[in-house]
Amino acid sequence: MNDPLDFADGSLPHEDFRCGTVALAGRPNVGKSTLLNALIGFRLSIISPRPQTTRHRILGIHTSDAGQILYVDTPGLHRGAKRAMNRSLNRAARSAISDVDLVVQVIEAGRFTDEDEALYTALVEQSAPRLLVINKVDLNKDKTVMLPFVAELTQHHHYDEIHYVSALKGQGLQALEQAIIKRLPVRAPLYGDDEVTDRSERFLAAEMVREQLMLRLDQELPYATTVEIEQFEDRPDGVAEVHAVIWVERAGQKAIVIGQGGAQLKAIGSAARRHMERMFERKVFLRLWVKVREGWADDENMLKKFGYTD
């Protein structure tokens, strides 16, 4: 496919080519990020077993002969948002569904919680079409229980289509993509066919460090931990030099992240660096520091500094 800049006259790659924005929305831990990665065929969004791993809106781009889908992975919409950061995540999630061509609500097979209901209520207020994706169907051994579950759900909830998928196993994704494409407007592509996101390498580097924190310290690590990239530059020798700060709220948390003799921090850095090198396709020199800032997750100025915006 040609670069979209080649279509200066507004013409399309072909007369039926479609392009639009699709929000992947759902409560925390239903598999939105796994679904995004599977749909674009690229490991873009970080994944961990911990709820609310996704803290930012992340655009994933998938281009095919039929069209270009701009998937927006959103923070999980959740109740009981007591801290400023939690409220910021909820605002980001609600903002993401307000200006898209299509919304995909993702739920877990066999479960429709109060948080799922709250999201559905928000979706009804929007004019965009909505699809329901029932994810993790591979974990449900008794398929017959899905029939009454869906029958009861659809008595009070309207969706244009329902799709059963396993994002982890790659099941049901082709049919879902086809359903999405046909509901997007006929439009020229907005990005080149080799682009997978609009996020910078700087942003992605911070996410890869944070992913390792969540994977390696899932039980010990507090929710109020984030990563800030202080330096990202390409050296003359072709190596990307990255300096990152891991922010925690208490000195005891700093000790947990560093580990005995610095072993934990070294393991986090080594794993994050390997992921960066695969994604950025060049050598990476990564330096990590751990710093304490009490109450940063309740400080609106610090949240803006760390990129938590609507």
Rank of each mutant, 00 (worst) to 15 (best):
263 A>G: 11
87 R>K: 10
99 D>Q: 05
136 K>Q: 08
212 Q>L: 03
220 E>V: 11
87 R>N: 06
102 L>F: 05
247 W>Y: 12
163 H>W: 03
7 F>V: 06
183 R>A: 03
6 D>P: 12
65 D>W: 08
245 V>F: 08
28 P>R: 06
184 L>Q: 01
92 A>Y: 09
104 V>G: 00
180 I>R: 04
95 S>T: 01
38 A>T: 13
266 K>S: 06
271 A>S: 15
176 L>T: 07
138 D>I: 13
106 V>Q: 11
145 V>W: 11
79 R>T: 06
242 V>Y: 06
2 N>H: 13
288 L>Q: 12
275 H>P: 03
57 R>M: 01
231 Q>P: 07
238 G>V: 07
166 S>G: 07
139 L>S: 13
36 L>H: 04
34 T>L: 03
212 Q>M: 09
263 A>R: 15
144 T>H: 08
109 A>H: 06
14 H>P: 14
99 D>H: 02
145 V>L: 06
282 R>V: 02
14 H>R: 08
275 H>I: 05
6 D>M: 02
248 V>G: 08
44 L>H: 02
50 R>G: 04
46 I>H: 11
151 A>Q: 15
227 V>A: 02
260 Q>L: 10
200 S>D: 08
15 E>M: 10
85 M>I: 06
210 R>V: 09
295 G>K: 14
69 I>W: 09
268 I>R: 09
4 P>C: 00
193 D>L: 07
266 K>Q: 02
133 V>L: 10
183 R>G: 03
73 D>I: 05
80 G>E: 01
47 I>T: 14
288 L>G: 05
104 V>C: 04
146 M>T: 15
76 G>W: 00
184 L>D: 05
55 R>C: 13
64 S>H: 04
297 A>Y: 03
143 K>A: 09
203 F>T: 11
94 R>K: 13
242 V>A: 04
178 Q>T: 14
171 Q>K: 14
69 I>K: 09
19 C>W: 13
3 D>S: 02
180 I>W: 14
294 E>G: 07
14 H>D: 14
293 R>M: 07
31 G>R: 12
229 I>Q: 09
18 R>F: 03
104 V>N: 03
53 T>R: 08
183 R>W: 13
212 Q>S: 04
178 Q>P: 13
13 P>Q: 02
168 L>W: 04
240 A>M: 01
297 A>R: 13
25 A>R: 00
76 G>V: 00
63 T>A: 04
254 K>E: 07
218 D>Q: 13
